[in-house]
C-alpha cells in the first residue's frame, strides 16, 4: 500500500507529471490527482477530446495535455473532486476547483488558499464562478494566485 494511503494527501513527488509552463500559458489544462486503482471512469466518458486515458475501469486516469481543451466537462462529474484546471495567465497562476460549501464566493472576493494538508499557504482572488445550481450542486471557482502555488493549492476557504 503506497504511503499516500496512510497520509490522505499526495506529496509533490507523487503527483502526475506536470504540464509544461508553455502548455499552461496556452490555455486551461486538466490536472488529475487520482493515483489509486478504484472502479470509476466518469472522467474518461465525459471527455469529448480523448484527453483522458484509462486502461480499464480500475486503472488511474492519465491526461494527455496536448488533447485537453480546458472545457471542464471532467471536473464537473468527478465524484472524487480530484480534477483541477490549471492555467498561467498574465504571469499569475489560476486554479479552477470544485466547491460544495456555503457561502459560494463571488468574483473579486479574496480567499485563503489551502494546500493538500489543509494549511493556509497564501491568499488568492476569485476571478470566475460557475454557480452550484448550474452544475447540480457543485460550484466551480477559479482563483488567481501566485504562479508558484499552482501545484500546491488544492482548496480554499471563504473569509
Amino acid at each position: 500500500m503506497p504511503d499516500y494511503c496512510k497520509r490522505g494527501f499526495l506529496l509533490t513527488d507523487e503527483i502526475a507529471p506536470r504540464p509544461s509552463d508553455e502548455r499552461l500559458k496556452e490555455r486551461k489544462v486538466a490536472f488529475i490527482e487520482c493515483p489509486q486503482e478504484i472502479p470509476c471512469n466518469a472522467c474518461v466518458f465525459s471527455c469529448k477530446f480523448d484527453a483522458v486515458e484509462m486502461e480499464n475501469i480500475n486503472a488511474p486516469p492519465r491526461v494527455i495535455y496536448e488533447n485537453c481543451t480546458g472545457c471542464m466537462k471532467c471536473i464537473r462529474v468527478c465524484p472524487g473532486l480530484a480534477i483541477f484546471m490549471l492555467e498561467i495567465k498574465d504571469g499569475k497562476g489560476r486554479i479552477t476547483m470544485p466547491y460544495e460549501f456555503l457561502p459560494v464566493p463571488e468574483k473579486g472576493d479574496t480567499v485563503s488558499l489551502l494546500n493538500r494538508k489543509g494549511e493556509i499557504v497564501g491568499e488568492g482572488t476569485v476571478t470566475w464562478v460557475l454557480p452550484p445550481e448550474k452544475n447540480e450542486g457543485t460550484a466551480l471557482v477559479t482563483v488567481e494566485m501566485d504562479k508558484d502555488l499552482l501545484f500546491e493549492v488544492r482548496a480554499f476557504r471563504v473569509r
Binding site: 500500500m1 494527501f9 499526495l10 489509486q36 494538508k117 489543509g118
Partner: peptide, 22 residues
Amino acid sequence: PVIGGYFVHAAKVRRLGIPIYT
C-alpha cells in the same frame, strides 16, 4: 495503519484540514 476508503475521498477532507489518525 492505512485509510480504509478511497484515497480521493480522504484527500477531500484532508485538504480542508481534518486530521486522520491511522
